[in-house]
Amino acid sequence: MDRNKLIKWIKTPAKMGNKYSLHAVYFCTGCGIIEIPPTITTRWDAERFGVTPAATPRQANLFLITGYVSLKTLKSIIRTYEQMPEPKYTVGFGSCPINGGMYWDSYNTIKHLDKYIPVDGWIAGCMPRPEAIFIAVTHLWKMIDNDMADGYKKYRNNYDQYRANQEKVLGSLDWPPLFK
């Protein structure tokens, strides 16, 4: 048997697990959170897809950044993101984390979230509908299959740059660097 095939065969269950069991961090970063309750409850029932909210970042592997990110929130987001175990996936929800959205000239919100933490996928719109979350989830599945959802690796490899960017807007952070 081919060695690579064997490795793939061993790796598949983990991939399957990562795909169909997305536990999302419950973090209401912005107004996008208003569409999360409908998504996880009766009408849309995200649990069908294995998407459920997790209590703490330690238990989660999916981070939905639901809306604009103010500086104070950014700090919490970084902390929460760093506490999640790998592999972890981030999805930016709404137009604000993409480029600032309608708060493009606000002094207190950051404009491009992917300069501070890696983002695997975006859902555009203000407000995106719950269906859009499912489309994002299915896209994420494809990305996991093709090893494209590798934001956490990017974060590890380019940690210095990320940390520098974070410190540029937030001043010093309260915790020591995650990777040395």
Binding site: S70, T73, M102, S106
Partner: peptide
Amino acid sequence: GYLHRGFEKLMECRTWMQNFPL
């Protein structure tokens, strides 16, 4: 303060009707 965007400041930079989406 986790959601502070400075709305009232932003409103001062937009016209009366532009403020509705905001």
